[in-house]
Amino acid sequence: MENLKGNPNSHLTAKERDNLSFPAKILFERKFLHGRILDFGCGFGNDVKILSAKGLDIKGYDKHYFPNYPSEKFDTIICFYVLNVLLPEEQSTVLMELSRLIKPTGKVYITVRRDIKFEGFRTHKMHQKKTYQCNVILHSKSVFRNENCEIYEYQHYNQLPKISDNHCPFCYPDSDRELVVESATAYAIYDKFPVSEGHALVIPKRHCADYFELSFKEQSACMFLLSKVKEIISSDYHPDGFNVGINIGEFGGQTVDHVHIHLIPRYKGDVANPRGGVRGVIPSKKEY
């Protein structure tokens, strides 16, 4: 099979319609669409036009057809059949973007296809170009499913109800904490006791004390998210450097028995001599 980097033709799967898409109809009829609404990956914008005509406050974003990226946060976001035409890394990027665009107490409704029989690249019948499709399963709450599609409801991780007696602060972060960004298996928050401005923690959702006991997929998700958090902090705080650190075990300085990766922004002049960086965990070994 041809090895294509990314899926540059994902937009070719967009379709023109004169009526509401099926998932939009379901969500509208069930009164799930509230407040300021964003259609993320809206294609030609048909649902935006129709729902707007019905009195809803909605706008659309699509990388190819409506490329002005939103500058605000929304009460409700809909994302229909987008993930099915993206490669895994692209899917993770979209999920992170959705987590950034939704308000802390808002909800995202993600629709995926359930009728895909062949996964991978194929030649689009009309456009005669390579397009990609795959099945997608999310860990969010399912609010609708039939043989053709499934609709998931996503909320910020710290807004979900507590379902066990686990008192780990990273399994159930406070609902009033600012969530920086989130993916399917990890999330990031700002440190309660920051070493510097913008100090953030990247945390896997599964309870695990030792980073080296995470699965490869979980470790990869944390590192992927770490890069996104670095991008956000760079834009918001403009640091001059970073330290990345993971404390493992009591004698490694770990105080919460749940993996958390520190991303610490560094600023010119924040210490007299920054040479050695993380070597400073043992002060006498910092200089070499």
Rank of each mutant, 00 (worst) to 15 (best):
E2M: 11
L20M: 10
P23A: 06
K31M: 04
F32L: 13
F32R: 08
G43Y: 00
N46F: 12
K49C: 01
I50W: 08
S52N: 15
G55R: 09
D62V: 01
H64E: 06
H64S: 14
F66M: 08
F66Y: 14
N68Q: 15
S71M: 07
K73T: 14
D75W: 06
D75Y: 02
I77F: 03
I77W: 05
V82P: 06
V82H: 02
L83M: 10
L83N: 07
N84S: 08
E90T: 13
L95W: 02
R100W: 01
L101C: 08
I102Q: 05
I102A: 11
T111K: 00
R113Q: 09
R113L: 12
I116K: 03
K117Y: 02
M126E: 15
Q133L: 09
I137F: 09
S140R: 08
V143M: 06
F144Y: 15
F144L: 05
F144P: 02
I151R: 03
E153Q: 14
H156P: 07
P173Q: 09
S175H: 12
L179Q: 10
A184K: 06
A188K: 00
Y190V: 06
D191Q: 00
P204D: 07
K205F: 12
R206T: 14
E213H: 14
S220V: 06
A221Y: 00
A221N: 10
C222P: 09
F224E: 15
E231N: 11
I233P: 10
S235V: 02
P239A: 10
D240Q: 00
F242I: 05
N243F: 04
N243A: 07
V244L: 15
V244K: 01
G245S: 15
G249P: 02
F251A: 12
H260M: 06
I261R: 03
H262S: 08
L263A: 10
R275F: 00
R275C: 00
G276F: 00
G280S: 09
V281Y: 13
P283I: 03
S284G: 01
S284L: 11
S284C: 07
K286H: 00
